[in-house]
Design a protein around this nucleic acid. Structure first.
Length: 451
RNA sequence: GGGUAUAUCGUUCAGCGGCCAGGACCCAGGAUUGUCGAUCCUGUGAGGAGGGUUCGAUUCCCUCUAUACCCGCCA
């Protein structure tokens, strides 16, 4: 059989067109016959007239029926979320939403729905608790407000990629199935792999470092997996990490400057692309200052003691409450939604962390707090092979499984560093959501593996 | 892993040692000459599981189960 004898190959495929938005239909086609398709968002039968609101994404167009037309075209059994194709005539009309409607409709039912959807979509706010909406995500996410959140996510990823692409960074994809040791003692998901053990990657850290030796500047957007049994509003077992790693840096401050550019680029993309979504959600984008205010870990601890009377001396990290306090302080003192905390103690940092020259117990690392929540962690990494040998020895980590990684350093690596932004946390804080799960399409946590 | 809290119609919340267990939303039926977060009327529909106290438990106590939040950890 030759390829040409396939019947499907003879006919050109239907064109892939950008669908005409319902707004376009309303604005530009008065008096013309059009075909509109969408979900039946609402149906109101009045004595003299019946209205069907057809939803397509965030757009809604009104289709108006006379009682006779409704009788003939709209089965009573047709429920919310039925998918319809309507041929009709666009008519300008002041009372209609958006100033126009489709009249003299001929309806073709593409998909009939006979039972009530599990969540209500035609109210201004999405109804139902978080758990209910997550259980019925396929439908709940259709709600314009839920949907808008994920348009912001998409634009944030786009802004991230654009900003880095314009600066010579190369996008990479590293494996999520990994063997051997992981970067730290964090809990990882174990799986079977052709008779041996494998793990789900808890971060692309080691791979993105290796790729600095290839491209110098790399980034990745992808899932990471944490088997920590945490149960909070800001942790998940799987989340999207927006990772960056770059070579030939001065120190961690080069990385911080890059992060500032990235944050500014993300906000610029959101502003340019997501006006309607930002307005719908009432979101105010943060200003990204030319220089993001910065405080050292030790200064932060001293400030916490002085201002809040909590003794945190000797603690290796800041608690969530402390980060909230610092976030509020950044807002008051600097008018900034963003705050860098630098110089975390080496003690609890991973083995590849670069110490602070002249202050070996502190590291060239930073966190970026966004409205009081830890959004980014980053820093300078070790880059000399001997430094890795010493660090692994000190940490008691067997270097054998890391041989493939260590080879990068054995054969020359520049001073480098990077960071990772939690996408869901970014969107959560942007939208003022009280739970990360509202910013996750299909969250995975200790209790939830489906849908 | 530690702590706290919660469990009632499909959903979201009330309430009470004797309740016809209430409201709102959804849904169903009806009404309204145009809705647009439609409105009005009517209707369907509920006490996580197992023990205990009590004349009587949806209510109080215990256990279990489930869930939520805080902490730890992180993004």
């Amino acid at each position: 059989m030759t390829r040409g004898s396939w019947s499907g190959a003879r006919r050109p495929p239907p064109p892939c067109e950008v669908p005409m938005s319902l707004e376009e239909v309303k604005a530009g086609y008065a008096g013309q016959e059009v075909v509109v398709r969408g979900w039946m968002h609402a149906c109101r039968r009045l004595a003299q007239v019946t209205f069907v609101l057809l939803r397509r994404g965030a757009d809604v167009v009104q289709v108006t029926f006379t009682p006779e037309e409704a009788e003939a075209q709209l089965p009573r059994s047709l429920g919310h979320e039925s998918v319809l194709e309507v041929r009709g005539v666009v008519a300008a009309r002041a009372e209609a939403p958006g100033g126009a409607e489709v009249i003299r409709p001929v309806v073709r039912v593409l998909s009939a729905v006979s039972e009530a959807p599990p969540v209500v979509l035609h109210k201004r706010e999405a109804q139902g608790s978080l758990g209910t909406q997550l259980d019925h995500a396929a439908v709940a996410l259709r709600h314009p407000r839920r949907r808008a959140v994920f348009r912001l996510s998409a634009a944030a990823m786009q802004g991230f990629r654009e900003t880095l692409g314009a600066r010579g960074f190369v996008e990479i994809q590293t494996p999520k199935l990994v063997g051997g040791a992981t970067e730290s003692g964090a809990n990882v998901f174990e799986l079977g792999y052709f008779g041996q053990k494998a793990w789900l990657a808890q971060s692309p850290q080691l791979y993105k470092q290796m790729m600095v030796g290839v491209f110098e500047r790399v980034f990745e957007v992808g899932p990471v997996f944490r088997a920590e049994p945490h149960a909070t509003t800001r942790h998940l077992s799987e989340y999207v990490s927006m990772d960056v790693e770059l070579g030939f840096i001065e120190d961690h401050r080069t990385v911080m400057a890059t992060l500032r550019e990235v944050m500014a680029g993300i906000m610029a993309r959101l502003e340019a692309s997501c006006g309607p979504e930002l307005a719908l959600l009432g979101v105010t984008l943060p200003q990204v200052p030319a220089v993001i205010p910065s405080i050292t870990f030790e200064e932060a601890q001293a400030w916490i003691e002085a201002q809040h009377g909590v003794s945190v001396r000797g603690e290796p990290d800041l608690a969530p409450q402390h980060e909230r306090w610092l976030g509020a302080w950044a807002q008051e003192a600097h008018g900034s939604d963003l705050l860098f905390v630098t110089g975390y103690p080496m003690a609890k940092r991973p083995f590849y962390t670069h110490p602070q020259p002249g202050h070996p117990t502190a590291s060239n690392s930073f966190d970026l707090l966004f409205r009081g929540v830890e959004l980014v962690t980053g820093g300078q990494r070790l880059h000399r092979y001997e430094a890795y040998e010493a660090a692994l020895l000190r940490a008691g980590i067997d270097p054998a499984p890391l041989a493939g990684y260590l080879e990068a350093f054995r054969y020359g690596m520049p001073p480098h560093g990077g960071f990772a932004i939690g996408l869901e946390r970014l969107v959560m804080q942007l939208c003022g959501l009280e739970n990360l799960r509202w910013a996750t399409l299909f969250p995975r946590d200790t209790h939830r593996l489906s849908p």
